[in-house]
Design a protein around this nucleic acid. Sequence first.
DNA 1: GTGAAAGCGCTAACAT
DNA 2: ATGTTAGCGCTTTCAC
Lengths: 332, 332
Amino acid sequence: VAVRNRRVTSADIAQATGVSRATVSYVINGVTTQSISEATRARILAAAADLGYTPYGPAKTLATGKSSLVLLVLPDWPIGYGINLLLDELEKQLATNGLSLVMHRLARPGERVADAWKAIGPFAVIGLGGIDDVEAQAMTRAGVELVTMTLSGTGAPAAIGRPQIEIGRLQARHLARTGHSVLGYAFPDDDRVVAYSEPRLEGVRLACADLGLAEPVVLTVPQDAEKAAMAVRQWKSRGVTGICAYNDQFALAVLAGLYELGMRAPDDLAVVGCDNDPAGRLAAPPLTTIDINLEQTARRLAALVIGAYKGQPAPQNDGPLASRLVVRRSAP
Amino acid sequence: VAVRNRRVTSADIAQATGVSRATVSYVINGVTTQSISEATRARILAAAADLGYTPYGPAKTLATGKSSLVLLVLPDWPIGYGINLLLDELEKQLATNGLSLVMHRLARPGERVADAWKAIGPFAVIGLGGIDDVEAQAMTRAGVELVTMTLSGTGAPAAIGRPQIEIGRLQARHLARTGHSVLGYAFPDDDRVVAYSEPRLEGVRLACADLGLAEPVVLTVPQDAEKAAMAVRQWKSRGVTGICAYNDQFALAVLAGLYELGMRAPDDLAVVGCDNDPAGRLAAPPLTTIDINLEQTARRLAALVIGAYKGQPAPQNDGPLASRLVVRRSAP
DNA sequence: GTGAAAGCGCTAACAT
DNA sequence: ATGTTAGCGCTTTCAC
């Protein structure tokens, strides 16, 4: 068994079996519009297995002009556990339609997706954020379908949205309903997520105004127990009794700050997070949070891509994605 | 501005500028072995921008026979925050060498990576687990470089390893050193990670044997406070005072179990996790853990891939990756 | 039922 | 300094 340098091509297997490359292609791809005698089919399959043949994606993509890859672009902020739900569902949906999901993470803030999608030449790109108009146009021009998540709930044709403002509203309303009248907001110390943190905070503000409560006391909370403790102290000194946090990570920081000071939720400060992170379920006390239903999100995203793949017409707009309050002991 | 169906190709820009496709290629790729007059260079670049030209990856890959993509295969178990460090570093290292990192997650247990890597035709595949010998061979035969992480610290030529057994050892030694003589092990309720959980537990066993301690009391701990509380009760009833957990997730579950029972670490039970997950830092109390240095891991992985890309000779074996104890209050 | 041939978009000798 | 040409591996129409 000599070491082979050259890639095994369909021509090799054509030669080995004494048929043409066209026939090989038909068999390998199980083309139904072309009848092939059982004998040659078997011979070809055997030779393929024997030689260890592997179709070469780029050549196939070039020839057909259509890739079976879908590129999911992940933003440059940290990936949390929630992403797993999204990926599982997306992968499953796409796979059953013959599409493969690959991901690319924007590592440096402001990095262009360009290098990745150009090299891949995917059928579609799913953007979770971090794709600007210039790039969006370039993709469309290059014939790549673009499906994005928008923040508002409206946007480009193939876009689905989750109104971030609703998240803040849900948080604030829950606290108001359970007797809190002076709220605080735990703002993230991470510039990369302002596109999310601002509208969420705005939702809290609006809810407070609606319900006749005071303006929320906004404090930036680092991922650090001692610094979070300082924030807690400030909130307490200003009469705050309930905190809406940007997400569960920062809610956990508030919990840690309380713990530092020998206090505890919900007695000293009620706190509600967002994302329904598994770590929140195991926190002390378990965290009240907002579930953003990533599976539904994935299904919608997949539907848009698959629709385009099958050449289906205009994507029906199913309206904005829903978020849901999950009550646990940190804000009962 | 009419809608264009056809992809803009280098031929279009050659025609527009009245030069040959070769010249266009030279300019677009900034080939230095070929001198191009400043005038034509400028004209070509202008036309490219004007027409919105985007090089088509698959065609380039086919022509050169070498892809600039590196595929990172993620195992089918949940991705944690730790992955961010790995990705950041890997992405950075590869990008500075002209390589793009893309990821594919094995969504269904037992899913073959095949579909993904065949469609992509990457230069290299980095396997974090879940790639069996059959697939490894197929890749190698297809001319794809394969770099893997092994569990033992030894393995295939282009492999780096972290002895999982060391993690258990570090956990147990720390507890023994701080006065605990009856240890418990929080075993994950997730079959997908047995390849990791077994050797980690084995490390605890070996350390106990070495130090003359009793066999560790192994209990399966679900990610659920109440069920974890039952485990805590059992441990307490069997005289256990210190717990080594499979990872921080399960350590958090133990902490939650303690909290359920009105107990707390480290007084009632000391607990040591693994992974240095940010959620552990914010736990109550902050979690003692093992840092597995994912940045170093990423650098090693990247070095192997980049070495192969540059056609460098045999990869020097830098030995196994080191893990490090991080002491916090859950097991001081 | 099978083969011949053209072509997908790009690169890289080699010629000029 | 620029053009010609021959592929890379695969698909697909059309002819046999």
